[in-house]
């Protein structure tokens, strides 16, 4: 058993490993960590590399994979790649859920019946409030797509990213996700983190290293402490949560992360609910 596997099994290291599939997006949300938008540099990991990372992660002892962006489903090759990754470890892919019109659903065929789940952003139970930060028609597209994804047999989680939400509004949001076919255990609520574009809009909370779970995150720019690490501000990818530029072999950043984690004071767990 590798040191990584032992640390994961012992609960000293989170089991999930993240990849940034790309940095471009069809949306330009005001709280976006990565300043993603249609025309930004794409920074694509590529399908071969993503499957290779999945294989290495499995061999090292990680237990599951996360894929984020950008909007990963802008990549035409993504569904097939996710299916190949899922032969190694279960995959959770984060998406804005706006690219699943009926004619595009056929593209998802490779992931049907595989260990690939989707996490879709839905912040508010009302179109106007939801779309204020995420862009026009976002709400309509998401609530339209989710039942169709569920019908395809794809597990869908909903992520609500907010500065704060009133109880009544949350109740309506939960009623909505249940109505869409997403159970309570697949609804996560998380704070806006003040990195990336959120800095410019003065949104969210500051998060330091020890506020964030040590989930190894691989990008074209290197390996980071958490998916909240490789953020972009003023076009520059942050370095404060960079671990190593080396990402292959994966053992190099994984062992460096473990070294950093084990130097943390005992009991020094995260204080923010950032997942």
């Amino acid at each position: 058993m590798s040191e990584i596997a032992e640390a994961v099994a012992g609960g000293r290291l989170p089991g999930r490993l993240w990849m940034y599939a790309n940095y471009h997006c069809n949306l330009a949300c005001t709280y976006c960590l990565t300043e993603s938008a249609p025309q930004v540099p794409r920074r694509e990991l590529g399908p071969t590399r993503m499957v290779e990372i999945a294989r290495e992660a499995s061999e090292l002892g990680f237990t599951d994979l996360g894929v984020t962006g950008g909007e990963p489903f802008l990549l035409m090759w993504l569904p097939q790649t996710l299916a190949e990754m899922a032969t190694h470890l279960p995959v959770l892919v984060l998406t804005n859920g706006t690219l699943f019109s009926p004619k595009r659903l056929a593209r998802l065929e490779p992931i049907r019946g595989s260990s690939v789940a989707m996490q879709i952003s839905l912040d508010r139970p009302d179109p106007d409030a939801n779309d204020e930060m995420r862009g026009a028609e976002n709400f309509a597209k998401v609530v339209d797509a989710i039942p169709r994804l569920v019908d395809l047999g794809i597990r869908v989680r909903i992520a609500t990213t907010v500065e704060s939400i009133e109880d009544a509004e949350l109740d309506r949001l939960c009623a909505l996700h249940r109505q869409l076919g997403v159970p309570d255990e697949d609804h996560v609520i998380r704070p806006i983190v003040r990195r990336g574009r959120a800095v410019d809009y003065r949104l969210g909370v500051d998060a330091q290293r020890d506020d964030l779970p040590a989930e190894l995150t691989i990008t074209t720019d290197g390996a980071y402490w958490s998916p909240f690490g490789p953020t972009v501000h003023s076009g520059v990818v942050g370095t404060d949560l960079l671990i190593t530029r080396t990402t292959s072999p994966l053992s190099v950043p994984a062992n460096a992360l473990l070294r950093l984690v084990e130097a943390r004071p005992p009991g020094d767990d995260m204080t923010l609910n950032i997942r």
């Binding site: 290293r209 942050g238 370095t239 404060d240 671990i243 190593t244 530029r245 080396t246 460096a256 950093l260």
Partner: peptide
Amino acid sequence: ADAPLLAAPYYRGGDPGPIVRSLAHVPEL
């Protein structure tokens, strides 16, 4: 404030100078 995690110890005594501050771009190096 931008020091990568493995580079942070080199900043604890104050400004570590331009050699460290440039090499910090590649912390494992």
